[in-house]
Design a protein around this nucleic acid. Structure first.
Lengths: 331, 331
DNA sequence: CTGAAAGCGCTTACAG
DNA sequence: CTGAAAGCGCTTACAG
């Protein structure tokens, strides 16, 4: 059987004996409609099984209630907590999230931005800062709210909610030096963010009088298996490190598992520090020392500025959510 | 400076010296427009910085090019690979994915379905089957493609792409029995799917002459820490199990880490089997025996039926992607 | 609190 | 291969 055409708002209006304008008002701001009128409309909607067409609504009001979230990946991402919390909050406000994947070399970023603009999304949320200058200009030329998260550029495209990766790296250096470690080895995922943390670490380490740390790179997205591999590659180093600074908790976890299997005692023979403070870090044996980034806090601040913007209020350009050292057993 | 209003298709038409209809055709099916005309249009678009309004397009054509993906969560989900692969493929076809979170008790499922219908999405993809009868009816009453994934109900709402959780559970029972284990203990996440696997396991186990297995439940989403906890709770059992059947690889991993810390040798003193065959399972020490579910295969088949539907072709109602035992060190 | 009317920016069947 | 015209289903400023 062919399905009947979906009823339109006008048919609801006829059924309820009011004008389309009133039905529209009832749907969008129920309070301005008289109680009795509202009731009739409600019944008409129920009777006809009316489902509004939000595409028409978006066109007429030029508000799509669509937010684009552009992330590198979701398979094994540190951002998942942030994204999840954002989707949750946005849903409460009646917004929907269009999730687009940009890959780690951002090769699809520009195309996804164009698509988001064409959909007339109310905002574009990016994880990580946009490196490409042309892309930044493109975004600035459009009347769309842009929020860069997890990073804190000097001059945000529009708004940034994040923390200084450089400062985080420096803090790790101070922390480890304070604990008496002297020969750190860095395992650095090949992402701009991890790179900045490594830079921050090294600068601080040298400044405090330490020797140049050894380092190696691993591909992003980083995962458990790379940690294991990283442990084995320690054997090739000229100086034996006393602590391994991992670019993510997954790398730290893999490295620990491999070290334990090799009979190495952690942290006595080798200390390990992760990054991100994933839930697993506190549950591992030994528990993993890490740097806590509060992804939900980032999400909260992002939603807050989004709401402020929607109300036409002025908002800060740079919001620093900071980070926090979490000392546990592994270092 | 106030941003100028975005140029409309009509302005592009004027600039290019053609009618709006021709510009629209060029945008949607470039091949039907003459080469020279296309070139002029391209230049006009470039010159004006035209970005089409897809909301208007969706209204006029009643095709939104929007696909809704409804998943319980993304923070620690077995579905992430599937979702990621689907988003990738859909993006290639110019579709966007609206990602909605339904929670593990599906409390938000109905609301998210209504929202998706209101956005006139071309398809709704669900992970897991929809239990609620009223919701199933609601979906059937609408002219939208509905794909249930990761499960294989007898009577899909529309189309199902998945596997039989019951058969998977039974297969694990046969596998372990064949390897000589006799006292399995089940750690079952409180999800309908995990429950079905447990049922399948127990039925098969009893049928093969085994004794009723012991079991305990853990909350979903299941994570590493629960595995550790589960290990400790083994001490409370009357019979000491020789193998623990875990509802996910995360649980298996946590359990292994805790067992090793307690000086238990795996699999000699206690065997462990996971579920899902996450990347990490093959990287763990010891490597984790698991059941492989090919999330990307599910994604591929989902995209395939979506494309077939778009072309108006008849498609299968139930697509079984199966599963595969992966024997490794842990059991 | 409610209605009449114009408009949002596209697509497409029809005709040529 | 291209154009004129109608229509997609809403919202909102204006008036009462």
């Amino acid at each position: 059987m062919p399905l009947p055409r979906a009823p339109r708002l006008e048919e609801v209006a006829v059924e309820a004996g009011v004008s389309p304008a009133t039905v529209s008002r009832y749907l969008n701001s129920p309070r301005v409609v008289a109680e009795a009128t509202g009731k009739r409309i409600r019944q008409a909607i129920e009777k006809l099984g009316y489902v509004p067409n939000l595409n028409a609504g978006a066109l007429a009001s030029s508000k799509s209630r669509l937010i684009a979230a552009l992330v590198p990946d979701i398979a094994a991402s540190m951002f998942n907590d942030t994204v999840e919390a954002m989707i949750d909050s946005l849903a409460e406000d009646g917004n929907s999230v269009v999730l687009a994947l940009t890959g780690y070399d951002n090769h699809r970023l520009l195309a996804e931005i164009e698509l988001a603009l064409a959909r007339r999304v109310d905002a574009i949320i990016l994880t990580g800062i946009v490196g490409d200058k042309r892309t930044r200009e493109r975004l600035r030329a459009h009347p769309v709210t842009v929020i860069e998260t997890w990073g804190l550029p000097e001059d945000p495209i529009d708004i940034a909610v994040g923390f200084s990766h450089r400062a985080a790296g420096a803090e790790v250096a101070r922390f480890l030096r304070g604990r008496g470690y002297r020969r750190p080895h860095l395992v650095v995922p090949t992402s701009p963010r991890a790179e900045r943390r490594a830079t921050g670490f090294i600068e601080q380490w040298l400044q405090d009088g330490g020797d140049e740390p050894t380092r190696m790179s691993v591909a992003v997205p980083s995962f458990f298996g790379q940690g294991r591999l990283s442990f084995r590659m320690l054997a090739d180093l000229d100086v034996r490190p006393d602590v391994v600074v991992c670019g993510s908790d997954w790398i730290a976890q893999g490295l620990i598992v491999e070290a334990l299997a090799a009979g190495i005692c952690i942290p006595d023979q080798l200390a390990v520090i992760g990054f991100g403070n994933l839930r697993m870090a506190g549950d591992m044996r030994p528990t993993i020392t890490s740097v806590d980034i509060d992804g939900k806090h980032i999400a909260r601040e992002t939603i807050r500025v989004l709401r402020a913007r929607a109300l036409g209020r002025e908002v800060e350009k740079r919001i620093d959510v900071g980070f926090r050292m979490v000392a546990r057993e592994s270092a």
